[in-house]
C-alpha cells in the first residue's frame, strides 16, 4: 500500500472531506428540488394563462438543470466512495 492510498484510507475512515455529510446535504437538496418539480408540474396542469404556463415551464427547466448538476455531483461522491 503506497502512502497516497494510506492517506486516503485514513481520510475516509475519519471522513475528513465530509463526504457523508455532503452526500446527505446533496440528497436533501435534490429531494427538495424534486418536490418543487412535482408542485410546479401540478400547477402547470392547472395553469389558465399562457404567461403562467410559460413562467412555470421556465422554472421547471431551471429545476431540471439544477437537479442534473446535483445528480452529477452525487454520482461523483458515490464513485469516490466505491473506489
Amino acid at each position: 500500500m503506497n502512502t497516497r492510498a494510506i492517506l486516503k484510507a485514513l481520510a475516509d475512515a475519519f471522513d475528513l472531506e465530509n463526504t457523508t455529510k455532503r452526500k446527505k446535504a446533496l440528497k436533501k437538496a435534490l429531494k427538495k428540488l424534486k418536490a418543487k418539480k412535482v408542485d410546479y408540474l401540478e400547477r402547470l396542469e392547472q395553469a389558465d394563462t399562457d404567461d403562467e404556463r410559460q413562467e412555470l415551464t421556465v422554472k421547471l427547466s431551471v429545476i431540471k438543470a439544477q437537479r442534473k448538476k446535483g445528480l452529477a455531483a452525487l454520482g461523483k461522491l458515490i464513485d469516490k466512495d466505491t473506489v
Binding site: 465530509n18 455532503r22 438543470a65 448538476k69
Partner: peptide, 20 residues
Amino acid sequence: QEDQEVNEILALTEDDLDEI
C-alpha cells in the same frame, strides 16, 4: 458549511442559463 457547498454546486452559471 455542507448546505452552502450544495447550493454552490446546484447554482446555475451564466453558461447553464444560456443553454436553457
